[in-house]
Each structure stands twice: as C-alpha cells, then as structure tokens.
Design a protein around this nucleic acid. Sequence first.
DNA 1: AATAAAATTTAGACAAATCTAAAAAAATTA
DNA 2: TAATTTTTTTAGATTTGTCTAAATTTTATT
Lengths: 220, 220
Amino acid sequence: MKNSVSKENYLKAIYHLQHESGTVGTNEVAAQLQTSAASVTDMLKKLKKQKLLLYERYKGFKLTQEGRKMALQVIRKHRLWEYFLVEKLKFGWDEVHEVAEELEHVSSKKLIDRLDKFLNYPQTDPHGDPIPDDQGRINQLPSQCLLDMPLNKPARVSGITSQSSGILELLQHKNIGIGTRVEVRKKYPFDNSIELKIKNQPVITLSEQVAKNILVQDEQ
Amino acid sequence: MKNSVSKENYLKAIYHLQHESGTVGTNEVAAQLQTSAASVTDMLKKLKKQKLLLYERYKGFKLTQEGRKMALQVIRKHRLWEYFLVEKLKFGWDEVHEVAEELEHVSSKKLIDRLDKFLNYPQTDPHGDPIPDDQGRINQLPSQCLLDMPLNKPARVSGITSQSSGILELLQHKNIGIGTRVEVRKKYPFDNSIELKIKNQPVITLSEQVAKNILVQDEQ
DNA sequence: AATAAAATTTAGACAAATCTAAAAAAATTA
DNA sequence: TAATTTTTTTAGATTTGTCTAAATTTTATT
Ligand SMILES: [Mn+2]
Ligand SMILES: [Mn+2]
Ligand SMILES: [Mn+2]
Ligand SMILES: [Mn+2]
C-alpha cells in the first residue's frame, strides 16, 4: 500500500499542474521534476496500473479520486512540516521547501496527526498555502492578485505565487510576509508598478513582476 | 557525498554489532537487517569501495574512521527524533523506533542541529541511550546489568538492552522507565529471578529474561 | 493538404538493491 | 587429519527508476 518517494513526487507534481493550468502534459511534469519526458511516460504507465491516474497514450492524463487523495496527503505533510520548521525551529520561510521535500515522505500517519495537534492545527503554511485536513479537505478563502486590488482598500497578504528564493528574499527586506496588512495607494499604468502602504510603515514601490506574485484577501 | 537509505542502515547496523559483540559477521548483519547474506556481501563491497569499511573477503570487516563517523551521525539523528516524538508529540517510548527509523534518513544538517537546540540538547534518548553530539562524540556513564547489582544498593535505570515492544510494554505496566530509582532486594539462584524495590512502590518480581535487559547506574 | 515542428512514446541500456541457488572457504567435529 | 557443518561469496535474475536516441503521433504552419 505504501508508495515510493518517486511516486509521491509525481502525484504531487501532477496535482499542482492540474490545478494551475487545467490540462497536464508529459513535458510539463518532466520540467517540474527535472527529469526526462521518457521517464515521465514510464511512470505514467505505473500510476495508471495502480489506478491512481486516468491516462491514454498521447491523450493527456489526470489523477483519479484515489490519486488526488494521495497527492493531498503528501501536500498536507509538506505544509505541516514547513510550518513546524518556521514556527518551532526558526527556519526562514525561504529555507524550508527543500527540507520539507524530504520530510513529506515519512510515512507514519500517527506522526503527522500528532504533529498537526502539536502545532495547534494551523490553517496555512508559511507561504500562505492552505493545509489540507486529514481527509484531504482544503478550506481556501478567495484571494486575488495584488495588481487587481482597488485603491485604498485594506487587505491582508495571503500568499506568494512564486516560491523562488529571489522574491522571498526581496519581500523579507521590504517587510512583507504572510498576514501583512496592506493598501494599494497608486497604480502607474506606464509600467504597472504600484505604491503600497504597509501598516505602521512608509509607502513603498513594487514592480509589476513582484506585485503579480502577491495574493491578498479582503480585510474586515 | 550523500548516502542512500540502505547504506545508512548498513552502517548503523555494523556499528552496533561492532560495539556489542566485537567481531561482525555477514550473517549477523543479515539477521539484523532482515535480508539475505548474499545481499550483505554485495553491500560490503560497495562500502569498501567508498572507503567506509575495512573488508577482505572471508576475513571479516569493520568500519573505517569515516564509516564510524557516518554511522554516529545517523544514530544521532535517530535518537534526537525519538526524543522529539516522546517529549513533544507524546508518543509512548515503545512506539518511536519505527518512525525514527525513517526520520533518521532526512539529510539536512541544519535541521538536526536546530532540532537539537529546540529540544535543549538532550543527553539521552527515551531508551536511555546516549545521543552523540554533532562531532559524533558520546559521553557514556558506566552502567551495569541489573542482574549483577549487589543487594540493597540504590541505582537508577539507565537503559534497556532489548527494544522489542514486548519488554517495553511489560516495563511500562510495572512502572519501570529510564530514570526510575530501584534497589535489588533478593536474588533467587534457582531461576535467577529477582525481587526489586521501586521507590514509592511495593516490591515486585522480575524474571531473568527481563532483568538481564535492564541496565542501571550507581545512584549517589 | 502537405510539410514542419513539437510532444509523446518506444527501444534498449544502466545503476542500485535485492533475491535464490550453487560454489568456495573456514570452522568444527569425529 | 578427514569428514561434516557453517559461513561466506559468486553467478545469474529481478524490480524500480532512470537515461539517450530513435520512432510515432499530434499540432501548427505554410
Ligand atoms: Mn518530495
Ligand atoms: Mn509551502
Ligand atoms: Mn533507518
Ligand atoms: Mn532508542
């Protein structure tokens, strides 16, 4: 019943691609997992045989109910461990991903349920992504891109789309993190840059490339 | 530079056997790791090629300095995770071994050093075994078998040799754990059973099979 | 529609870790 | 010491996950 590390990584990658771009292609998965397209095809066949994937050759693929459920369990583990690393072991939010990529494959169900309890059932990981419960359910408040916010409307940073350490470092320097309260004060159509007021801090400017990666939720 | 899960398990098994019975044999390792003697021989060759093992065919083997160092790092991780599971996640001391057997292979050095700090640099794991520091150093107080203790000499339980869940469950029922203060009140040469006084509790009887697995240190 | 390009799959190979059965060496016993 | 038993190694396969190169299918472009 227990899947290999490799299979878990494939399930997770397919799940994420499915929920971002709708359809999933062999090359996309290969790029995500830094492997060859041929290797992906090999694995697709194995996942199909295990009834974790709906797949016809050349016709694209997507996870079955069972596959999705497994992917969500891996994601749950990944995000709980990330939370642990930041909240308890004082890792920076830009250093946890790699480590969680290993920890997520430890298989004990009891371990993860106890960890959840120990952390007091957190709702989101340090990047603002929601943590599925032990049934795989996600409760996601609607959030929108910072670029689309109307002027002077209070909002709270709820997530960062890109997780490149570059953007995370930049945001840390500008004192923007998950939960930070912000208001857009001005938008410049010329370069799509914005001026942003952060609570208790002066107004700062963000480029389009940065702002488009920031998700916010309405405040109050 | 990073070793596989399997290699780490071999290094650890050889280290333990080396320190218990002096010499190590292929069959012993096979029994410990529940694999075949042929598989062990295969791995011995690989470990030799990596200079982690001194090995000549048919002539026995032992770890090199480098191999011992690696084994001790795995043991450090194993015991720190066991401590975490018991102290923070409230696992029973008889349920942690299997889970730690997986967690010990997560490779981040920073993770384990931060965990050590978070746990406040514990000296021993929940079974009383010493936790090596990040240089692989162990500070081990001399301890002896409960069967060899003189009568009425105060002592403190410092370790359990066997880690079968059978004995751990038995000891839990009789309120014996690491740190429990005890005195041997009587020895019966007929079956080598003993009568044991536990502080604040009535005298109990332990069979030879149980008593020989209990290690104690002199008290005061 | 014919051709070119891109995406995907197949063919064939390899490394790691395992196995069983058989052979070889060492240790024990008679 | 010779025979027997035990331990250890070799030979030959198998499974999993990966690779490159070549073939096939689909999609896009003239
Ligand atoms: Mn992973
Ligand atoms: Mn995350
Ligand atoms: Mn292990
Ligand atoms: Mn232990």
